[in-house]
């Protein structure tokens, strides 16, 4: 049983760190920019398809992974432009980009093959970054370590970025656009670049996931938006957001915790079709936890007052 426990921890670290980047990306758009960005499922698949396609065609995996950041960035910029320049409502802008990306992803996955498009790329015969980074003999340990390093670097980067003049202006834009403009901030530019950064992280997340799973397919982004949001909510509720540093770490840990919970359920033999019900219950518990906390504190105070 200790074995199972150990594996649950390694599984959740494995997926939690990789998807932690996804959570950070969604955090930037939803929480910092206050922009409900639906591009995520498209840009996630884009990162996976793009990286897998490059590796499939012989390009160095490290370079391929690195370049996925830029494709994601472009996807985010497109959504940003649709919204700020063409005045398309935010939800619709994300949907438009996500829809267009479906075709682009199919085309990417067909590169180097006989047909003009494909819905999947298999990587098991090729080297991924995890093959190049073999510190340990066991592949999953390499994955955990490399993902941890990458997530830590990205988190540090985010902490630094949002403390710069530019980053502060971006956060101000998300909080109060009118005030931001009154302080000389180009809010349109902030939204465009902010969405770019957000989707760049989401793409990078997928590049890691595709290489860990040794395949990328056109459906790999399904459900990732919900996963990201759930990770943020769980992370904030359990680990708090007292200051910015605390906040972004909570988001990543939230992702780990999310997968921990799912993995526990799977290992406890929960029937698969019940998993969706489990998600809903977890989210409810997590969201009402602060409420319950407050009630307990209020009740305690009442007791104290009665005693005095």
């Amino acid at each position: 049983m200790l074995d199972t426990l150990r594996f649950i921890i390694t599984d959740s670290l494995n997926l939690g760190f990789a998807y932690g980047l996804l959570a950070l990306g969604i955090f930037i758009s939803y929480r910092l920019l206050d922009f409900a960005d639906l591009t995520a499922e498209g840009s996630f698949t884009l990162g996976g398809a793009f990286t897998a396609a490059l590796i499939f065609n012989g390009i160095n995996p490290i370079l391929s992974t690195f370049l996925s950041i830029f494709v994601g960035f472009i996807a985010g910029i497109i959504t940003g432009l649709l919204h700020t320049k063409l005045k398309i409502p935010s939800l619709l802008s994300g949907i438009i980009t996500m829809t267009a990306l479906f075709s682009i992803n199919m085309i990417l996955m067909g590169i180097g093959k006989d047909s003009k498009y494909d819905s999947v790329v298999y990587l098991s015969k090729l080297d991924t970054i995890y093959e190049l980074f073999s510190v340990f003999k066991l592949r999953y340990l390499n994955i955990i370590l490399l993902n941890f390093i990458i997530v830590s670097l990205v988190t540090l980067f985010c902490y630094w970025l949002f403390g710069t003049e530019f980053g502060m202006s971006l956060r101000a834009t998300g909080m109060n656009q009118k005030m931001a403009r009154a302080q000389g901030i180009n809010t349109s530019l902030m939204i465009i670049i902010g969405l770019g950064i957000s989707n760049a992280l989401i793409s990078l997340s997928a590049a890691l996931v595709a290489q860990a799973n040794q395949s990328a397919d056109v459906n790999m982004g399904i459900g990732t938006l919900v996963v990201g949001l759930a990770s943020i909510i769980i992370g904030e509720a359990i680990f708090g957001k007292r200051n910015f540093c605390n906040w972004i770490i909570s988001v990543v840990l939230g992702s780990v915790l999310y997968y921990l919970i799912i993995d526990i359920a799977i290992n406890l033999g929960l029937d698969s079709y019940l998993l969706k019900l489990l998600y809903a219950i977890i989210i409810i518990i997590v969201l009402t936890a602060p409420l319950i906390k407050k009630r307990i504190i209020t009740l305690k105070r009442k007791k104290k007052n009665v005693e005095n």
Partner: peptide, 19 residues
């Protein structure tokens, strides 16, 4: 942070540390 924003009302927002 709010006041920091105000100090840069007339400037370009660079990547220098905001505080």
């Amino acid at each position: 942070e709010n006041m920091e924003l105000a100090t840069r009302r007339d400037q370009k927002k660079t990547l220098r540390w905001g505080f």
